Simulated scan of single mutants.
Amino acid sequence: MAVFRYRPAAMRIGVAREIKPREYRVALTPAGALELVRHGHEVVVEEGAGVGSGFADEQYAAVGARTASVDEVWATAELLLKVKEPVAAEYGRLREGLTLFTYLHIAADAPLTRALVDSGVTAIAYETVETADRRLPLLAPMSEVAGRLAPQMGAWALEKAHGGRGILLGGVPGVPPAKVVVLGGGVVGFNAALIAVGMQADVWVLDRSVDRMRDLESMLNGRISLAMSSRLQIEEAIADADMVIGAVLVPGALAPKLVTREMLSLMKRGAALVDVAIDQGGCFETSHATTHDDPVFEVDGIVHYCVANMPGAVPVTSTKALTNVTLPYVEAIAAKGAGRAIADDPALARGVNVTAGKITYRAVADAHGLPYTPLADAVPARV
């Protein structure tokens, strides 16, 4: 007697072109597209989506993907892959029956949150996919990239021509290096400290975990100074800092405001703040999101660098790093359907921020004062 095994139908997977200013990344490389095509899925890539990352339309076609217009990609995809959150011009394309898989950061974006809720879309955020051991596997590579970029961009902001103090990060013989203070010792903070040390700065990292500080001391071979983070310690550290990097993350929630406007008066004129947490509202009270076209602004004599898509500046690196970690989850959703994939994987389930018109991630609901619905109660059949 023959045994028949159920195999879900092939899924149509769309890859949208990013339209956020100076966003050059794409959510899927041709190598990733090939893996999905090999498993029988249809991959439809928006025309020109990969150009900014060095991937021509012909490279996707060569592996069996198809290129199409923006209207077709959004209207026909069952699973839509992006890098950044939908912008206002894309809100009207959100629809019931679509699963959106991208970075969302909606705790800091009330209009997008409302658009997602109203549309009926299932929105899975890369940044809140979380494993049982509290790792954030889809956020980590972009945190690594942003952390490594932070000292580089902060050094640029410190140049006199850009409003900074006019100090070289590493100094020269006979002239001391700049002091760099990193607030937070997680993935962003470690990578920021790693590069700042490599640029020969005097690096301080503040964190609230003694165990994490022990790890950092070991990983960086004792080349940084470490201190327990508190308001008083932050005030003392930033008073003689040339650069302060905000690297504190609360998954899916608004970032804590660690440096207030009042505290700016303690700092040297022309010092630079680099807010890597700006996607989540920023950890400096005076921060607001900027773009690669206009990256810095000044408040009370302090230069702020608050670009909301920092890794977009290095798309070739960022796109490959992103696909490396997202592809296994994309493959699971494509093979099983979104509902079964979410049911089978608690980490992926934690990524669901909105479904069936309900907010299913508590930190997002709390940030906007809106009702929270546990995922299991949010009409599972619609996921």
Rank of each mutant, 00 (worst) to 15 (best):
A140L: 14
F101R: 02
D109Q: 02
L194Y: 15
L100W: 11
V182G: 08
L139K: 06
E217D: 12
I195V: 14
G92V: 13
W204I: 05
D215A: 14
E85I: 01
V197E: 11
L183E: 09
V172A: 15
R95C: 04
F190Y: 15
I167C: 00
L158I: 02
T113W: 07
L158K: 06
I224P: 00
V197T: 04
A110I: 05
L116F: 03
M153V: 09
A155Y: 01
A227D: 11
H105A: 03
S225G: 04
R223T: 15
R223W: 14
P111E: 04
G97C: 03
Y103F: 15
V205P: 00
I106D: 04
R148K: 03
L168T: 03
T128K: 11
M228V: 08
L194S: 10
D202T: 09
V187S: 12
S218N: 08
P111V: 04
L149T: 06
L94I: 10
P137S: 11
H105V: 03
D109F: 02
A125V: 11
N191Y: 15
R208I: 15
P176N: 09
S143Y: 12
V172T: 15
W204M: 07
V203E: 04
R214K: 12
E96P: 02
I167M: 12
E144S: 02
L149K: 02
G170P: 11
D215W: 14
L104H: 01
L169T: 11
K179A: 05
L194V: 05
A108G: 04
P86R: 06
A193R: 09
F190I: 09
R114S: 06
E144K: 07
D207K: 10
L116V: 05
L216S: 02
S143A: 15
L206E: 06
D211H: 11
D118T: 06
D211K: 10
G174S: 13
M142Q: 13
D133E: 14
L100T: 03
E144D: 07
R95E: 05
G166C: 07
M153N: 04
V145P: 00
M213P: 00
E130W: 09
M219L: 15
A110E: 04
M199G: 00
A193L: 13
P86I: 05
E127G: 07
T113C: 08
P86Y: 13
A146D: 10
I124E: 01
L136M: 13
W204K: 01
L220I: 09
K179P: 00
P111W: 09
S209K: 10
L226T: 00
E159D: 08
L183F: 10
Q152G: 01
G120D: 00
L149F: 03
G184I: 13
L206N: 00
A110F: 07
T99G: 02
F101K: 04
V121S: 06
V121I: 08
I106K: 05
L158E: 01
H162F: 15
L104N: 00
L139A: 10
M219Q: 15
A110H: 05
M213I: 01
A125C: 11
H162M: 13
I224N: 09
R212K: 08
I167L: 08
G171N: 04
M213N: 02
